[in-house]
Write a protein that binds this DNA or RNA. Structure first.
Length: 741
DNA sequence: GACCTGCTGCGGGTTG
């Protein structure tokens, strides 16, 4: 293995020597044989800056070094910024071997694209959307230019798994193999990904039809250590003049922790990112020191983002980015001293990714979480009394440290919107194509394998009705008037859309806007602008949601993050509340990672848990409110909320806790019993009651039946919810028996 | 107090 590099092209060996590397890293050695063989897919899993890209490119370039013409390597990236990085990083190597590298995305220079058009060779760096546009507009050129294609590599593959865009990508790759006549001699795919849990399941997401095997290469356990701390803050219920607000104390600490070094502060929302960055910049100004705190998020101008990225990478001046997930993926910013999370993270997967940004020169990764909980009053919500934002943060740290687990992709989704897109794209690419050919290409052999022939026929006939497609006398399908219109517009190439905002209105007053990508049911209770509301009416045409004041106690400060929290996280939260201890076991020792305030806040939550006897019951009468504590992930919790609304209750869920106001808990238990015994309630019934089911980009063109089916699969899990209810009721039954004895 | 990604061809103007 040590001599593996000798199998590389001599000029590449020279290049390695010139970099001053005394040897290749382990993953780089391991990747050489499988990639040179060209006979297997490869998954390379390693943390940021571990040399994944070189692990692929050294052998891949070696294998095309003497290729005279035609593009030899197709590199696909989810971000334009990553393509620009890769273009720079490949420069010295490609110069040495005289290999043409062409970045190809919406903003890359036309001159280099034209050059590749005239003389296809070397490496193309492209986004899925630009590849789609090439297939539709110039498939003849693609067919000849890619005739000698040897490797396909996908960067940041985890960003694609389980998403609409990921399905789009798989479909593009399959269409490309088909176009090049390589269905029976597949082009090997290499996926580059951060170290994420269940690697064995990834090959199925890289090539669903399994026509090539996959070799998994992973970084052996890195010896780097993780240092973490959770700091608690209390938001005062009454604002007194001159009192320091919780956000101000968070900023004071950030200023002390971050000034003088390079750090990333993740604040989970753009507005929070802005307000923290502004406060920190003002603190620099009032202390008459140069500002080193800058915001970074999706709504900021590209130039501002790039300036900040360059400043971090150059590492000349201390710099802290206050950011959203824009700095989570692999844009080259170098390693930072530490990562700070200012609100509870929503998934272990993203927390791991953020962690990977810290740890300079093999030193420890440092993670801090600064969590604010509300000052409690008589009327406080049960979510706040349990200190669930803190408990969620603690649970996530335990899962991060103690296990390799991360949230798996939801494989029950149909991706109908993307299927419709691909039907249109195929017809646009070929001009005309038969229905059975489309079915084989996309569903039977392609990535949409859970779509049945019946679904597919319904989809096509509806597409005919709305004039997206037309059938010729010969049986071939061609684009209809609407189909032409949609596919001719440049916005067609992306399969994802920016979610539509609904206006939230009470009476004649507008409260604000809400993106509708989560459950909104008439009768549902929600929290908006710090108050409780009940949804009266959802007007999908005018994009308006009418609400009315809901009575009840104070709304929870922590309503959940909007992104689904997984079952495993909620179970871990239950576990630490039961034990009254969140410390991590290392050998004989239990390691404390909370500061004094965090410890005190946790104790309040654990004490409330105990007093309310929540270790033995999942049902509670809390004043006028009936409360159900399922300790399950959001998909199951949402299913239970929809069931209760279906049965006529005004229910809502906050941070995984279900509340039904002005209701006796026995009535709720009765309703859940009938759900347990009534096998006829299905996810389809629940989805039928949802006013706005069109979530994905092309959902609006789907036939009703398919739209409902897709929505039901994505939003609800009735089987799991029923099994859980059975369990909760059984526990209650046992408990009642024990009390009697 | 909800996150992020991407996109063509062409016409018209300016500059070297």
């Amino acid at each position: 293995m040590i001599d593996a590099h000798e199998r590389l092209d001599f000029r590449i060996q020279q290049w390695i020597f010139k970099q001053g590397w005394d040897r290749l890293r382990e993953i780089q050695c391991l990747a050489i044989d499988p990639i040179l063989s060209g006979k297997t897919d490869v998954l390379i899993s390693a943390s940021t800056a571990a040399g994944k890209t070189e692990a692929f490119f050294l052998p891949a370039i070696s294998s095309i070094a003497d290729q005279v013409s035609g593009v030899g390597i197709l590199y696909i990236s989810p971000l334009k910024a990553l393509i620009n990085d890769q273009d720079r990083r490949l420069e010295s190597l490609s110069d040495l071997l005289d290999i043409q590298v062409t970045p190809w995305h919406g903003d890359s220079p036309q001159g280099r694209k034209n050059k590749l058009k005239r003389n296809p060779s070397g490496i193309i760096l492209i986004t899925p959307e630009s590849l789609e546009s090439l297939l539709i507009r110039d498939s003849g050129w693609v067919k000849s230019a890619f005739q000698n294609l040897k490797h396909i590599v996908i960067d940041e593959f985890h960003a694609f798994i389980g998403t609409e865009r990921g399905h789009h990508l798989l479909s593009l790759l399959h269409r490309l193999e088909h176009l090049l006549g390589r269905v029976n001699a597949p082009i090997p795919r290499t996926a580059l990904s951060a170290t994420l849990g269940d690697l064995e399941s990834v090959p199925a997401s890289l090539r669903p039809n399994k026509s090539l095997s996959c070799k998994i290469i992973k970084q052996t356990q890195s010896s780097s250590t993780l240092k973490m701390q959770v700091k608690g803050y209390i938001e005062s219920a009454v604002v007194i003049d001159e009192a320091v607000t919780a956000e101000q104390s968070v900023c004071n600490d950030l200023y002390g922790l971050c000034r003088g070094g390079n750090h990333l502060v993740f604040a989970n929302s753009r507005s929070r990112t802005e307000s923290i960055a502004t406060t920190l910049a003002e603190m620099c100004e009032s202390n008459t020191v140069p500002n080193e705190f800058f915001p970074h998020h999706g709504s900021l101008a590209k130039e501002m983002r790039e300036t900040l990225e360059a400043r971090l990478q150059q590492d000349q001046m201390p710099t802290t980015a206050v950011c959203t997930m824009t700095l989570e993926l692999g844009i080259d910013i170098g390693k930072v001293n530490s990562v700070v999370q200012v609100t509870a993270p929503h998934s272990i997967a993203s927390l791991r990714q953020r962690m990977g940004r810290s740890g300079r020169r093999g030193g420890a990764s440092i993670l801090r979480m600064l969590i604010t909980e509300a000052d409690l009053t008589e009327k406080s919500s049960i979510v706040d009394k349990l200190r669930l934002e803190l408990v969620q943060s603690l649970a996530m740290i335990r899962l991060l440290v103690a296990s390799k687990w991360y949230e798996p992709a939801d494989t029950s989704l149909y991706h109908f919107s993307t299927l419709l897109h691909q039907v249109l794209a195929l017809i646009a690419q070929w001009g005309g194509i038969r229905a059975d050919q489309i079915y084989v290409l996309l569903c039977k052999d392609g990535p949409f394998q859970q779509v049945t022939v019946t679904h597919f026929k319904d989809l096509l006939s509806h597409m005919g009705k709305v004039d997206l497609i037309t059938q010729l006398g010969s049986g071939e399908l061609v684009l209809g008037f609407m189909g032409e219109k949609i596919t001719n517009h440049y916005t067609f190439y992306a399969v994802f859309k920016t979610p539509e905002e609904f206006r939230i209105v009470t009476g004649s007053k507008t409260l604000g806007t809400l993106p509708v990508d989560s459950l909104i049911l008439e009768g549902q209770h929600i929290v908006f602008a710090g108050k409780r509301w009940v949804v009266e009416l959802v007007d999908t045409d005018k994009k308006v949601i009418s609400v009315q004041h809901a009575k009840g106690g104070k709304p929870p400060k922590f309503g959940g993050s909007g992104m689904a929290v997984h079952d495993v996280v909620r179970q871990e939260m239950l576990k630490i509340l039961k034990e009254g201890d969140y410390r991590v076991q290392v050998g004989e020792q239990r390691i404390e990672f909370g500061d004094a305030v965090a410890q005190a806040l946790f104790k309040e939550g654990a004490d409330f848990f105990k007093t309310a006897k929540l270790e033995s019951t999942h049902f509670l009468q809390y004043g006028n409110t009936a409360v159900v504590l399922p300790w399950a992930g959001d998909k199951v919790v949402n299913t239970l909320v929809a069931v209760l609304i279906h049965k006529g209750f005004g229910a809502g869920a906050f941070a995984g806790i279900i509340e039904v106001e002005n209701t006796l808990i026995d009535d709720v238990i009765g309703a859940l019993k009938s759900f347990r015994d009534d096998q006829t309630i299905s996810a389809i019934d629940l989805a039928d009651a949802i006013a706005e089911k069109a979530i994905d980009k092309f959902d609006e063109y789907l036939p009703q039946e398919i739209l409902v089916k897709g929505y039901a699969a994505r939003a609800f899990d009735v089987e799991k919810a029923r099994a859980l209810v059975k369990e909760l009721l059984m526990a209650r039954f046992k408990q009642a028996k024990e009390v009697k004895l």
